[in-house]
Write a protein that binds this DNA or RNA. Structure first.
Length: 207
DNA sequence: TGCCAGGCCCTCTTTAGGGCCTT
């Protein structure tokens, strides 16, 4: 049951690779809870995936095998994370990726979630159609959000995604003179053809 | 050690192919 449709969990996984179907596992989860546009909670934990991470992943994330040796196993961390997200809608940058890992890790422990997933990448492609790139880091630069550039850790990336999300909401509000943008509208926006986004939001604006 | 996937989106499209994005 959704507690509050406008309280969101914005999350980011670091993983051993790209595909849980190929045996990849989560190694870190970071998430931010936002209520009424304000951060009211955070979650970040490393987790031991039961295998070693490659040199590429250690370089990419800064998460080493030594760091993971001390971490709780995925199963234990994901129980805590399942509690954290219960009752809230979810957002991630390129959500199809994070959703695959969330679903895979929660299925392993017999847990689930009831929120709906929206994707800041799909929204950004519609709201900032002229951006040269829709990578998270590039969008942070494009929107002039201050950043020290320390990407690819789970909490940092979820904080940056949160800032981007809030900037996109403000951009929609000011561009279309809207007081409030409900989450279900964003779910529909993310599926609207790019060419039709302006028409879609103007229709909503007119009620 | 090196490799792997999948959804979205565009176009020289839909009987397909390739770039973008995520680790």
């Amino acid at each position: 049951m959704i507690v509050n449709a406008d309280t969101l969990i914005i999350l980011d996984f670091e993983t051993t690779g790209l595909s849980p179907d190929m045996g990849d596992r989560a190694i870190e989860i970071g998430a931010v809870k936002i209520e009424n546009g304000k951060i009211t909670g955070r979650f970040q934990e490393l987790m031991h995936p039961g295998r070693r991470v490659s040199g590429f992943i250690a370089d990419y994330t800064g998460i080493t095998n030594t760091m993971l040796e001390k971490a709780a196993p995925c199963e234990e961390v994901m129980h805590r994370f399942a509690d954290f997200i219960q009752g809230y809608n979810l957002v991630a940058h390129n959500a199809s990726f994070d959703k695959r890992f969330l679903d895979a890790e929660l299925t392993r422990i017999g847990r689930g979630y009831d929120g709906e997933f929206s994707c800041s990448l799909l929204v950004a492609r519609r709201i900032f159609q002229d951006a040269p790139s829709h990578k998270l880091g590039e969008l942070i630069n494009y929107t002039n959000i201050p950043s020290d550039g320390g990407f690819h850790r789970a909490l940092f990336d979820s904080e940056m995604t949160t800032k981007l999300w809030l900037v996109m909401l403000e951009e929609m509000k000011s561009r279309y003179n809207l007081a409030y943008i409900p989450f279900p509208l964003i779910l529909k926006l993310a599926k609207t053809p790019k060419k039709s986004v302006d028409t879609f939001l103007r229709r909503y604006q007119q009620g």
